[in-house]
Design a protein around this nucleic acid. Sequence first.
DNA 1: ATACCGTACAATGTTAACAATTAACACCAA
DNA 2: TTGGTGTTAATTGTTAACATTGTACGGTAT
Lengths: 210, 210
Amino acid sequence: MPFQIYSDRLMRMQPKTVREQVTNQIRDDLLSGRFEAGSMLREIELASRFGVSRGPVRDAFIQLSNEGYLAYQANRGVTVRRPPNPDDRRFITSVRKQIETHVILKGTPHLTDNSLKNVESALDRLKVACDEGKATTIALRDVEFHESILVACGGDDMLGAWRQLCSRMLLTYTRHQDYAHTYREHFEIFTPLSNKDAQSTVEAIVANIQ
Amino acid sequence: MPFQIYSDRLMRMQPKTVREQVTNQIRDDLLSGRFEAGSMLREIELASRFGVSRGPVRDAFIQLSNEGYLAYQANRGVTVRRPPNPDDRRFITSVRKQIETHVILKGTPHLTDNSLKNVESALDRLKVACDEGKATTIALRDVEFHESILVACGGDDMLGAWRQLCSRMLLTYTRHQDYAHTYREHFEIFTPLSNKDAQSTVEAIVANIQ
DNA sequence: ATACCGTACAATGTTAACAATTAACACCAA
DNA sequence: TTGGTGTTAATTGTTAACATTGTACGGTAT
């Protein structure tokens, strides 16, 4: 069975290594807007903040650069990347829809109870976030829900590209103020999925992504 | 001006850091099929082969995992990923066409002489590879040519996702035996591009990607 | 005043030692 | 035989010291 790089984050398990914890923490901070776009991140500063050495922080910088959040310059460190412009944003959304559609159509027949359970718990976490009403957390859970579907449908080959696209989008996450509606929309994705109704799932997903 | 992570590889400059050299070397080896799909790569082994410490090799593993070549498991190291199945392959090709089309249509008007020169030298290197007739090198130069176009057209926001898609495709690069034809096809992409004829460039690109 | 150069400092890059984890194997008991 | 357990070797994870690079600042000559 293929291995999921971010399974710890996705399944909300305690990350095994310091590197994973640091990476997750910095990613969350980036999505929460704690770091200003264009600003530089210092290895030493973050290392001391987390109480670890520079090694894992370096690893996290490399990974987050590849995920699209940070820009890396040799001997000069990393800077926070800016969100995409509206034109690219529209295009990225279109590609995202295609990828999710492709993976769902292909993977729905092979869904297992276990993988569906992971999707369901992702939905639960989204609900908790919506109840709390904290926008940045909702954004995170939103993406994680979609990610859990891709994983459940065996879309490992697409996951990397999909994450690249989503990471940039997340930096300008905007949604209805109506958080209950946000949850309902995703619930209406899960329902047909759990019935292995690929066509309806795709329709709900395409309507959701915008 | 945004920074290009792989510019050293793209411009065929001497990589500045050991990490970049190691990353490039391992990537080339992967594309040459030196490492069998599914096999494990050992930090110590590669470090001693390159005559460096494990640090840069670790960094390279993280990066190549994020690029889609390797699969990473905590405390267990990395394995070489398998190429995508035909179904996914077709889909990936379709998305690749869309991305390149989008970036070219948007970026052609803003092309500079300098950026065009980078594309031209990428084309030159492809020609050298075609003359030599070594398939793996041609595959590499082929992708680098397309990448240089994306960079020239300012497609930084798409580059990460595009690379994710291409990296997997490269693991099963197959092309005409007629290497001269391969070069000519790419020459016919460059010509309209250098004239800032976006429409013809896109047509040539779409015909080329398969 | 301005341009140039050299020095000092602060940051990243690299290394090697040490810690923690994993997997394999031998061993023992039921 | 089988199932579990402890040991051991191999590998990755982490750290801290050291090396190198890049930037900023101040002095000097023009």
